[in-house]
């Protein structure tokens, strides 16, 4: 199994952020949708976007920051070129997920929430990918992979490292 399609991102600019925000500013309660769009556009939520969003939605910066910091999906720094999410929930635990997590951390030399020093892979934990009958499961840049073992992980990691060289 392979990684999902790699996403490409634009460099952050306040003007472009304003355009992205404007697309949804007439929706009801659009803050989370807007933050998602901004992250999809730039790859992360630049702190400079916070006051722009707050201004556009007539919210305080604290309210916007509060939402960004509440949700696990939002990141305020760019991720690595590849994002690997390993499920740590019970159904995957029953099939050896903790061992898989230990292998990934050791192999990559980083803990969950971190990116390898060469910027190749960001490692994240996730709680349930809905693939609980084919566990353990990972999401490799959006591609769901089931019945994962150490060698599946090694193949993914090698492919990402090779592409980064």
């Amino acid at each position: 199994m392979q990684w999902g399609a790699r996403r490409s991102y634009e460099a952050f600019s306040p003007e472009r952020a304003g355009e992205v925000i404007a697309l949804r500013s007439s929706e009801r309660g659009p803050l989370i949708e807007i933050l998602r769009d901004l992250q999809a556009t730039f790859g992360y939520l630049d702190p400079a976007a916070t006051p722009i969003v707050a201004e556009a939605l007539n919210l305080s910066e604290a309210e916007v920051y509060g939402v960004i910091s509440f949700y696990a999906d939002f990141r305020t720094e760019p991720a690595g070129r590849r994002v690997l999410q390993i499920c740590r929930a019970e159904a995957c635990q029953a099939m050896g997920a903790e061992k898989l997590c230990a292998h990934a951390r050791k192999r990559l030399g980083v803990d969950f929430g971190s990116t390898t020093p060469d910027g190749a892979i960001t490692l994240l934990e996730v709680f349930c990918l809905g693939n609980c009958a084919l566990s353990p499961a990972v999401l490799a840049d959006g591609q769901l992979i089931g019945r994962v073992d150490d060698s599946t992980l090694d193949e993914l990691i090698e492919a990402a490292e090779l592409a980064s060289r």
């Binding site: 009801r28 309660g29 659009p30 803050l31 989370i32 949708e33 933050l35 998602r36 939605l57 309210e63 509060g66 939402v67 509440f70 949700y71 696990a72 999906d73 939002f74 996730v126 709680f127």
Partner: peptide, 26 residues
């Protein structure tokens, strides 16, 4: 369709409503 943002508690109905309104899932 509104997509969540990686928070388990937003499956609780009132936290979900908060999240749908664009706030922290409290």
């Amino acid at each position: 369709v509104r997509v969540g943002a990686g928070s388990y508690i937003c499956g609780e109905e009132t936290a979900m409503l908060e999240s749908l309104e664009g706030r922290r899932g409290v």
